[in-house]
């Protein structure tokens, strides 16, 4: 035994060709993976780079072929021009308010409703759940006009209310997502809480909410992203320019007959995308973790 151990190292190093050495293979894998990832990243970055590049051109140089990737001179004035041509500071304020409030409302309401569907027993609960899921099948275009008429009746047209208030009553997709997560919480914990005297509401508040933090973060982020980009809802309900969100504000740069000022549109788009990139950069750990946990892709 002792002899064998002593002899081994030298022999093995000689016996294995260099390309089979662990360190070499590891390095090769790393180089290969990095190359593939870099190529992928470049391909994905091209539209973003095009956006940034176009945002620094003039209306006519934006169209030149072949495109000039690094515009000289760089027209930085496109940014202030585009952002003041329409009141973008108001659009940003509106979007931030809209996305934050709706994300809060949806997370709160969906979590409570999902808890009910996951853990409480009631006659017809499954039928009710199917109805909730059924609302997913209805395209927005179908419900849009009846909803509009309803909100008109309430006098809510050209306000943010029709867009925000309904989110405090849940969203079928997020309810479904959270329900699946809640079903995986062990019954023993719930039973223990019952024995300790928790009410059903307590169980949700003290057991489910803390345990589902990653899932809730994912839900809140999904909801935030969705409402940040939401276009049709604000377009239909809002008319006053000062009340518009960024999504509709950007569409206001488009013009019929190819008259769209691309350099401005891109400058405004870069500005609109920037906050999302920053949020994703800092939150990606939660975002990806949450999606992995809930087993659903966004």
């Amino acid at each position: 035994m002792a002899e064998q151990t002593l002899v081994r190292p030298a022999r093995i190093v000689e016996a294995i060709p260099f390309w089979q050495r662990r360190s070499v293979r590891r390095a090769a894998t790393t180089i290969f993976a990095t190359t593939v990832a870099t190529i992928g990243a470049v391909v994905i970055m091209i539209p973003l780079l095009w956006m940034i590049s176009t945002s620094l051109k003039t209306k006519f140089t934006a169209l030149q072929l072949p495109p000039q990737w690094i515009p000289r001179p760089a027209h930085w004035e496109n940014y202030p021009d585009a952002l003041t041509f329409l009141p973008f500071h108001l659009f940003f304020r509106n979007t931030i308010m809209y996305a934050t409030l709706t994300a809060f409302g949806e997370t709160l309401s969906c979590s409570l409703v999902a808890y009910g569907f996951a853990r409480l027993r009631a006659p017809g609960k499954n039928v009710l759940f199917l109805i909730v899921l059924g609302t997913l099948m209805l395209p927005y275009q179908v419900t849009m006009i009846p909803q509009y008429v309803l909100f008109k009746f309430l006098g809510w047209i050209d306000t943010w209310k029709p867009l925000i208030v309904p989110t405090f009553f849940g969203s079928a997709y997020l309810i479904f997502l959270l329900r699946q997560f809640y079903m995986s919480i062990h019954q023993d914990i719930v039973d223990a809480a019952r024995i300790d005297g928790c009410s059903y509401f307590d169980i949700w508040w003290r057991i489910f909410l803390p345990l589902s933090r990653p899932a809730l973060t994912a839900v809140a982020l999904l909801s935030f992203m969705y409402h940040w980009n939401d276009y049709l809802g604000p377009l239909i309900y809002l008319s006053t320019t000062e009340k518009l969100p960024v999504s509709v504000g950007l569409a206001n740069f488009t013009a019929a007959y190819g008259g769209t000022p691309w350099h401005w549109l891109m400058a405004a788009s870069v500005t609109a995308v920037a906050p999302l990139v920053v949020i994703f950069f800092f939150m990606q750990r939660y975002f990806i973790q949450g999606i992995v946990i809930t087993g659903v892709k966004g």
Binding site: M144, I145, Y148, V149, K152, I157, L232, L235, I236, S239, T240, T241, A251, N252, T254, A256
Partner: peptide
């Protein structure tokens, strides 16, 4: 004057909603 500005694609959609709501 209440100016309502709508992108081409959605010009009829929004108008239809406004007409349906009697506005």
């Amino acid at each position: 004057i209440n100016l309502v500005i709508v992108p081409w694609d959605d010009f009829d959609t929004k108008m239809q909603a406004m007409i349906a709501a009697g506005d």
